[in-house]
């Protein structure tokens, strides 16, 4: 039962983020098409985008699923991969599935730029969102450690 709960929670997390990506991707795609005189998106493309967004989110989760200890450089690499993996998936999918076939190059270029910027902004926002909680946690940690770290003989902080 515990494992079921764990998997359901993980699945819900994945679907939530996939939906956030899906809405953004679809909105950006529709707007760009609309600017270029195409009013409407086929249900097939909407479905394809949903699947791609789900895969993008799984890619992002895989980057952070590890519970192992990692070295100083890894957090930076992980954060870069968090944007890079879904970006690559999105670009590959749009060409393979022909989302912009018959449309000028400027459409897919602007779409990719906007979506990559969106992913980077989402990442920054996530970090900002957890800043307060991080501060609370560190206060608790310092209290737990009795402030020894700040003026103790080791002087490690």
């Amino acid at each position: 039962m515990k494992n079921w709960k764990k998997w359901i929670r993980a699945e819900m997390d994945t679907e939530f983020f996939a939906c956030v990506h899906w809405v953004s991707l679809l909105w950006c795609y529709s707007m760009i098409r609309w600017f270029f005189g195409v009013d409407g998106v086929s249900f097939l493309v909407i479905t394809e985008m949903g699947i791609v967004c789900y895969l993008m989110t799984i890619g992002q989760r895989v980057v952070f699923c590890d519970e192992r200890i990692y070295k100083k450089i890894n957090p930076i690499v992980r954060n870069i991969l968090w944007v890079f993996i879904p970006s690559v998936l999105m670009i590959v999918a749009q060409f393979l599935l022909g989302w912009f076939s018959g449309m000028p190059d400027v459409t897919w270029i602007s779409f990719d730029i906007i979506m990559i910027l969106f992913l980077a902004v989402v990442e920054v926002c996530i970090h900002k969102f957890y800043e307060d909680d991080t501060a609370v946690l560190n206060d608790l940690l310092v209290k737990y450690q009795g402030g020894a770290r700040q003026d103790g003989p080791s002087g490690e902080k």
């Binding site: 957890y130 909680d133 991080t134 946690l137 560190n138 940690l141 770290r149 490690e156 902080k157």
Partner: peptide, 9 residues
């Protein structure tokens, strides 16, 4: 532990 950072999930 030197510092803690709250993360997604």
């Amino acid at each position: 532990i030197v510092s803690l950072q709250s993360e997604v999930g």
